[in-house]
Design a binder for these strands. Structure first.
Lengths: 348, 348
DNA sequence: GAATGATCCTAAAGCGCATTAGTGGACCAT
DNA sequence: ATGGTCCACTAATGCGCTTTAGGATCATTC
């Protein structure tokens, strides 16, 4: 006979109170390190709780005003760009590390677009589900930040610009402009003058930052054959753009891809068109991952510590939840790892 | 002056009751489609709720016995194998699709190992956080299933074997053995006799299933030079094993990798050692993704619909939560997509 | 014209916890 | 002895919801 649900009952504070011979309130005080009980009683209560395997019911906690002990994370990208991105899993991994330490849960949701994402925030807020959220892929003119302000939902924007007029939101960002500048430096030093930047989704704040930075650098140096092309981050578009660019008369000598996936797709296309990397064209990926060492030649890449990025973001959020002020923190500038896909431009 | 938290109060049923001029219980009946209120009242209450933007507080719901409206998902793999795997994001994507429709939240956590994972389940259960969980990467002799049985926590095992003696758990699985058999069929027809299977983590149920299936097929055909080697799914180990295998005297003519990442790493090593794919060695990836079309030659792969896999699993879990019986459902056998990395064995 | 139901609704209790307002006693000062 | 302070603890309330037990009103029935 298949044993029916043992339905082991979860122990409650009442159980602890009974076993310890004190009132429920005493138990509450004892377990929350509040004054009002003697040390001996506190110890006894703690031991009983431990022994019973008691854990506070998040529902009850949340109901009595303590918050849900949960933070939210919404991923809103076109479905087909989700698959191959190593960044997010790493980011989430770092986030978890910090949250788990404080027993905070991570509520995860994928949405189709920013509007849906906003709806999710509204619902979470109304349902009392999360105490705060982590926002990724901030846009220029982002409706989410206004919404979060309005709801008063603590939030950390990951990858946002520091010039926010949303004083309630924390921001964790990398200096893409600086990274782009030093990248152009490096390429320029190698003799590259025709540079194409295969960017990510237009409207993303960091995409725009990189594009602007590239343009500024080009102007500063008087380079006229430098441009950015936006894509949807997919290998397909990365390949398509590469094809178009390399078929031009006087094709670019350096290609900068906004992610590793497109860069890999790009070198495949280059090879197919008879371009040798890096002899004919240099390739740089803006995101380092195992992928970059899985193709030949190994890809030079701008590397940052995505796990640490996640840790930082989560730390800021917990600070916010603790009542701290909103802050803007900058993570280290991505560093260029030169591997085999970049080289001096062919002379003559 | 920076506007302080507007602290917009969430509307409660009491607000609705007041505005609609009825009691709170009437509101509850009305909104939950329970008998006890007239249609006109029901409509009025619904309208007021709508207008106020009311949503039930999950905390309150959970507290009054309705469950947490949340399911859990723990990912326990060594950190470095997390990064490049496209399978999980797709799986989660499919899971979400089903859960979101019912407004079920997905609580996500990464753990270091199975023991930590068990601890997470215990905590979630004690904290009343989830109504059920989705379990991935089942092992042979898996402590999780016993634990979940013990806790009476509804669960769906994704990728488990169908021969479970855990009648309380649902299982969603793919017929790896069948897929392996047809794969060996195909390779055998191409003339391959020396086949090496670069498998995933030992102890994983599906790893063992594939290994057993390969051995069975080999025996059935009297092939003696067929073997499986386990790895940790990383590109590094995939490359290392490939190197070792191809350096052997009489190296294998066909390599079957348990994921796309290792397969890609493998072809790179093959090229490096002077092996041409597929002329000298055929390569198949057990998992199809954009990756397989990002290298040259394009990789032949066993393809399955991971998003649909996720949908199926989530559907089973919701059925379980609705009080349905535990079931074992099989998803379609992975299909071999023949691209450019497989071919007839070189004669002579 | 009282008993019987059916219908629509309200009152009240309870879920598990935090928190506020007591309560009784020990201990001190007057 | 009287009042005042601490101290360690208990009682009671509320969070937002579901649910059970009733009540009030009205139509039906013999």
């Amino acid at each position: 006979m298949p044993a029916k649900r043992p339905a082991a009952r979860r122990p409650t504070m009442k159980d602890i109170a009974r076993r310890a011979g004190v009132s429920e309130s005493a138990v509450s005080f004892a377990l929350n390190d509040r004054p009002g009980v003697s040390e001996v009683t506190r110890d006894r209560v703690r031991r009983v709780a431990e022994q019973l395997g008691w854990r506070p019911s998040t529902a009850a906690r949340a109901l009595s005003g303590e918050g849900a002990a949960t933070v939210g994370f919404v991923l809103a990208r076109p479905a087909h760009t989700l698959g191959v991105d190593s960044f997010f899993l790493q980011l989430v991994s770092g986030i978890q590390e910090v949250l788990a330490r404080r027993h905070l849960g991570l509520l995860f949701q994928v949405a189709r677009n920013v509007d849906d994402e906003c709806a999710v925030y509204r619902r979470w807020w109304a349902e009392h589900r999360v105490d705060g959220v982590l926002v990724v892929d901030p846009r220029t003119d982002d409706p989410r930040q206004d919404l979060l302000d309005e709801l008063g939902l603590p939030a950390v924007v990951i990858g946002g610009a520091p010039d926010e007029r949303h004083p309630g939101l924390s921001t964790v960002w990398a200096d893409d402009a600086g990274a782009m500048a030093s990248l152009v430096d490096a390429l320029h030093a190698l003799g590259h003058r025709r540079i194409v930047h295969i960017a990510g989704l237009p409207g993303f704040a960091h995409t725009e930052r990189r594009i602007r930075a590239l343009r500024a650098e080009a102007e500063r140096r008087g380079l006229t054959e430098v441009q950015s092309v936006t894509t949807d981050y997919s290998d397909a578009e990365g390949a398509a753009v590469t094809r178009r660019v390399l078929r031009a008369t006087a094709p670019a000598t350096a290609l900068v891809y906004d992610n590793d996936v497109m860069a890999v797709a790009g070198v495949a296309v280059a090879a197919e068109l008879g371009f040798s990397v890096p002899a004919d064209v240099s390739v740089v990926a803006w995101e380092d991952s195992a992928l970059c060492r899985m193709v030949k030649p190994w890809l030079s890449a701008l590397s940052r510590d995505s796990v640490e990025f996640g840790r930082t973001a989560a730390t800021e959020l917990t600070a916010l939840l603790d009542g701290g002020p909103a802050r803007t923190v900058r993570v280290p500038v991505p560093r260029l790892i030169e591997r085999d896909s970049t080289g001096a431009v062919r002379t003559g």
